[in-house]
Amino acid sequence: MLHASKKSLLEYLATRTIMYFATIFSGITLTYLLVKAMPVDAVENIIFGLTQTVAGVYDPQSINKLREDLYEIFGLTGKSPLEDYLIFIRRVFTFNFGPSFISFPTPAFELVLRRLPWTIGLLSVSTAITWITGNLLGTIAGYFRTKKFTKVLESIAISLYPVPYYIMALILMLLFAFLIPIFPLGGGISVIPESINLELILNIIWHSLLPALSLILPGALGWSFLSSRTLTLEVLSEDYTRYAEFRGLPGKYVLRRYVLRNILVPQVTVLALSLGGIFSGALLTEVIFAYPGVGSLAYRAAFAGDINTLMAVLILSMIAVSTAIYLLDLLYPLVDPRIRYR
């Protein structure tokens, strides 16, 4: 009976993997086209801006090298468009984004790579917490839809949902700076470590609390809550849930085995779809709390007009987000038996 299952699972994995690479590829192409569509003198504009602001840092030779790099990145080498595109693609796939401007001549790629663990750490932990608490709260709210506390939670959710993460971060900052000044308002750590030890880790966590909270709060009480509540209402009206109650199964059990289990499937999709938005929000959160991740780096790069570093941030983030979504997709068959054996 379960004969065809292995093959279809393989098929599923194969399509997902192809889609994964296709997305990254099309994202890179998209970036190329957008940058190419910019006004022609962009390169000279950047070079001019650089020599004005940080004159003397660069010798003419490295400026010329930079100019070449930029022309390649912008696809403006004067060769055929196809060649330009291939050069661009080659640079991207070899992670060669040229030297950064903000800490010349360190390669931009290296700069981003150094910051990436901070961002991924903050984002993965807070997204996991958001997703779990949001789903639990949403399911409970859907199940007890007529209770008073549900109405209160819903009003909070409706007010929180449209507020972007970074505005939430500012609000938290206002609150914690004036009303309850307990958390450190900025930075990743307060002392430069000599070695990695428990104290250091605790210190990092302590500093990440506020940024994490500003990511968790609007999610757990916003998108995650609202979507799981809607899904719960849907699952509650399904025949199988109603029949479970008809059979005399206790409410708590039905909530766990029937409702929660069945909303898990679409909620994985919701998570995957919102990842891009969460990522952008996290970048701004980092800036606001001076958290030493990719966002703060991008901020400095944007300030200095460091297009190489920005490009590296963009492409690597694209890969990071697509990879996260891809991994979620791979998780899908584990929560939905219908995919595993179809």
């Binding site: 199988y240 029949y243 005399g248 069945n262 939905d336 219908r338």
Partner: peptide
Amino acid sequence: FWRHISYIPQSSMNVLNPT
């Protein structure tokens, strides 16, 4: 329910938990 009286609903094609 189920000990003394049980019920098979009309739309019983979809009454089993899909997961």
